[in-house]
Design a protein around this nucleic acid. Structure first.
Lengths: 227, 227
DNA sequence: GTCTATAGCCTGATAGAC
DNA sequence: GTCTATCAGGCTATAGAC
């Protein structure tokens, strides 16, 4: 259940600010509708492509006239914005959870990225919005950037653990190592999206090779530094 | 210069089939216009996104009314089709040329993929059309599939050379090796597209790592087969 | 091969009644 | 918060004159 909120909503969780009697109920109902709109938007993007999202189609499926949506989102771009933020947060959580459940170091890094990959394949459309930027006129908000940084921080930490445990050489303590890792996961996911859109993580020709690919990292960052 | 032709044009190169006097000139002029349309279409896709291609915009830039385009292409999808075919052929040629100029084996494989990558970055929009399938309602024609097979054949050959020369273990003579290689190049290109769209191949944080990534292949397919 | 005209659809967004 | 009505624009595609 996505507990989200409008990008420019002022009241955080439905707290009573104005003088009305019991605004909680109304606010909660409002949040439910917003969640419904976002769920439908995800469906539409999955079926028609990320670019195929339209207010009219969302309204149609919600059983409402298009102008009504403007009470919840000020524009189509605001819907993209909300989808982006919630998606990024969910994906970060998936990666974080995957990492926490595994032995620290290289194993945790692989587990975290696999968990993230699992989420991406289960949320194809949003993942495309997050990482492939298919809507030219849409630019993510600054808040989104902060979440990106958190993901990088998690990966940097896992790489540092791997170095500390002697799984990778000291060269893995570097920005370039993160770029390399993100390139690997991106390649696997892009191939899976393009060629096997229906398969979940772990099936098909591409996603199963990911752990094997990651086990090449010790060859890329050898323990014995060679000039 | 793209010597292309309409997907369903009957006369191959402008040969005189009907009874008119000198149809060559007319046919050549027609091919020129078709080439112009495709060039403009590429520009539009580059600026507005692959999905942003519209007949109206192409007509506007060509200085013509939209209905006139239907004398050259029966539909918008036919334009996508032509762009797809020509693009695939050009990309194949880039890879082939890059391979031919290098020492056979792993070096040729890397050179071919780098040449293809160079082409993709210089033809961003078409490359997206080829490999990322951003237009849900567009499906490439069967001819396109044949060209894909040629690319796979080239890569398979280079991998076999690498095995024969003792650069890779025998396990590289396998479909999975091709999937692995294509995953690596896809990852690098996707990252470059998303994060450094303006940079050519060889600059930035991602494309320079590609050769290094490919030099990990001997670790993935070691010479000494271990149980 | 080019044009005008037009059909018939879609879209995002706003105004204002209830 | 929902609706109707509407604006203003986009688009693909076709018909038919020249």
């Amino acid at each position: 259940m996505a507990t989200t909120r409008s990008p420019q909503a002022g009241t955080p969780t439905g707290a009573a600010v104005d003088g009305s009697a019991r605004p909680d109920r109304r606010a909660r109902r409002r949040q439910e509708t917003i969640g419904e709109i976002l769920d439908i938007a995800r469906d539409v993007m999955t079926e028609e492509g990320v670019n195929g999202l339209s207010l009219a189609e969302v309204a149609r499926r919600l059983g409402v006239q298009p102008p009504s949506l403007y009470k919840y989102f000020p524009s189509l771009m605001a819907i993209y914005d909300a989808l982006f933020l919630v998606g990024q947060r969910d994906n970060l959580e998936a990666m974080s959870r995957g990492m926490a459940e595994a032995e620290p170091g290289l194993t945790a890094l692989i587990a975290g990225l696999e968990s993230s990959g699992r989420w991406c394949l289960a949320n194809r459309a949003v993942a495309e919005l997050l990482f492939w930027r298919p809507v030219p006129s849409f630019n993510p908000s600054p808040e989104a950037f902060a979440i990106s940084m958190e993901m990088v921080t998690l990966q940097r930490g896992a790489l540092a653990d791997a170095v500390a445990r002697g799984q990778l050489g000291p060269a893995a303590n570097d920005e370039n190592a993160i770029y390399l890792v993100s390139t690997l996961i991106t390649g696997v996911l892009t191939q899976a999206f393009s060629n096997e859109p229906e398969l979940p993580w772990g099936e098909g020709r591409f996603t199963p090779m990911f752990p094997r690919l990651m086990r090449l990292l010790p060859a890329a960052f050898p323990l014995s530094a060679r000039a």
